[in-house]
Amino acid sequence: MKKRVLTVDDSRTIRNMLLVTLNNAGFETIQAEDGVEGLEVLEEANPDVIVTDINMPRLDGFGFIEGVRKNDRYRAIPILVLTTESDAEKKNRARQAGATGWIVKPFDPTKLIDAIERVTA
């Protein structure tokens, strides 16, 4: 079975890059455009791992992570956060919200796949 990745990002560019990178690496990719949609598709997507942006309209990455962690069925899913720089403060907030790890944007495809491999069985 392919691993399923849910990506949550409002940037079409980043969404497409994630899609291409993940599909090439043999993952099944489900995409949402913001935190609200991310939570909506969670059940349908039933992902093995989530990759989410922080700055998003409607519901940002922090809120989205908290939402996933409150969900009885999906709270165990590893969540990787996309951050633009090695922004310590943001990383910290994301961690407090329940993020599993992070990927620095602009991401290097290998690092993205590495990070996903690290948090998934």
Partner: peptide, 17 residues
Amino acid sequence: VNAVFRAVHSIKGGAGA
């Protein structure tokens, strides 16, 4: 303000890629 910030942030993110 957030939307303005996001716009620039998003351009930066893609441009970096």
